[in-house]
Structure formats: C-alpha cells, structure tokens
Simulated scan of single mutants.
Amino acid sequence: MSRCTPRANKDAIKVPAQQRIACQEDGLGKVIAFIFVVSMFLAFVQEVFESVMAWYRDTMAWLSETATYLAGFWPF
C-alpha cells in the first residue's frame, strides 16, 4: 500500500501533516513528470514531421529537375 493512502477508516487513522505534505509533493512530482513526458513526445513528433516534410520537398525538387533534364532531350 502507498504511504499516502490510509489503510482503513480515515477517521480512525490520523495522518500527520508532514506525511500529507509529502503526499502532495509526490503528486506534484508525478504531474511534472507527466508534463515532461508529453512535451518530449510532442517534440519527437515535431522532429519526425519536419524530417518527412523536408524529405518530401527535396524529393519534389529532384523530380522536377529530373523531368526538366529529360524533357530537354525531346525533339519538339
């Protein structure tokens, strides 16, 4: 069982103030860790998106240049 949750009846067990503060700090730490993990995931998604978009733009530029080069060989 967690040290933050009393075992039985809440009225029968008095939780010291220091333990309540420690429990609140544990909760705050979990929230901060969750925000950090979510922000790192979003940063990863952004990097992947930017990489794919750069690859797409470079591919389109290469295809355009290749088509222009090959069209130069047409006799018309």
Rank of each mutant, 00 (worst) to 15 (best):
T59E: 11
Y69V: 03
T59W: 10
L42Y: 02
K14F: 02
K10D: 12
T59L: 10
I21V: 11
P16M: 01
R7S: 15
D58H: 01
F36P: 08
T59S: 10
D26P: 00
Q19C: 03
T68G: 14
C23E: 00
I21E: 10
K10V: 13
L63I: 06
R57V: 04
F44I: 11
E65L: 13
M60D: 07
F49I: 04
A67V: 04
I13K: 05
W62H: 12
G29V: 01
V15W: 01
T5G: 09
Q18W: 10
L63H: 04
M1L: 15
A22T: 04
Q18C: 07
A67C: 07
V52A: 10
E25D: 11
S39C: 11
R20T: 03
W55K: 15
F36E: 14
Q24S: 05
D58G: 02
I32E: 05
Q18S: 13
W62M: 08
K14M: 04
T5P: 03
A33W: 05
A12P: 00
A22N: 10
R20A: 05
T66F: 10
S39H: 03
A67D: 07
F73M: 02
F44H: 11
A54I: 07
T59N: 09
M60C: 07
Y56A: 07
I32Q: 07
R3S: 15
S64M: 05
T66D: 08
R7G: 14
A43P: 00
G29N: 05
P6S: 02
P16Q: 01
C23H: 00
F73I: 00
P6T: 04
